[in-house]
Nucleic acid binder design. Structure first.
Length: 172
DNA sequence: TTAGTGATATCC
DNA sequence: GATATCACTAAA
């Protein structure tokens, strides 16, 4: 059983938090007391209004408001009408940045992760800090990380689409 | 490769 | 009010 990750961890630049989050364990306690645990195997960083791949690139709206808010908060977004994608807000307040959780160690795919962890839109805006329902743990694992270009954002243009802000645990 | 799906943003 | 878009997945 690991240590719960605290506010300081998330209150750093997303480019530090995103790779650090790889290998950490997401814990979700269900109302009936069951704990779902999954080690994070892959993340992506989204950072700033100039990042054309970031939702906040179009400015501050009701939807992206959370990205500008406190670190340690969960941003859940419904994609293509059926997939929940989970992000963790990082960095300073008023600085739009967040980490997209792309995969756990037992499955690949952002929507699979939320499905398996039973996370949906009702988690949007919740905090990972001091919560009895959902939090991250550090069990001391320090996986090797490799980087790669982000996926699914072809619309963002050559520069932003090729930048290596995807962080993957190197298996074996 | 394509269909399916619905919230959000943007345009009348 | 209407339409276009989208950080995806599964099936073929």
């Amino acid at each position: 059983m690991g240590r719960r990750i605290d506010a300081e961890f998330f209150h750093r630049d997303v480019l530090e938090v995103a790779p650090d989050l790889v290998g950490k364990i997401l814990v979700h306690r269900l109302p009936d007391g069951t704990e779902l645990r999954e080690r994070i195997a892959e993340t992506e960083a989204y950072r700033g209004e100039e990042d054309k791949g970031c939702h906040a690139s179009k400015g501050r709206t009701k939807r992206t408001e959370l990205l500008y808010g406190r670190s340690g908060v969960i941003y859940v977004y419904l994609c293509y009408g059926m997939h929940w994608l989970m992000n963790v807000i990082t960095g300073e307040t008023d600085q739009p940045q967040g980490v997209l959780l792309r995969a756990g160690e037992n499955f690949g795919g952002p929507a699979k992760l939320t499905k398996k962890m039973k996370i949906d839109g009702s988690f949007n805006g919740r905090s990972l800090l001091g919560s009895e329902e959902i939090w991250f743990e550090d069990d001391g694992a320090r996986p090797r990380i490799r980087t790669a270009p982000r996926v699914g954002i072809d619309y963002a243009g050559e520069v932003w689409k090729n930048i290596e802000w995807r962080f993957i645990a190197d298996g074996e």
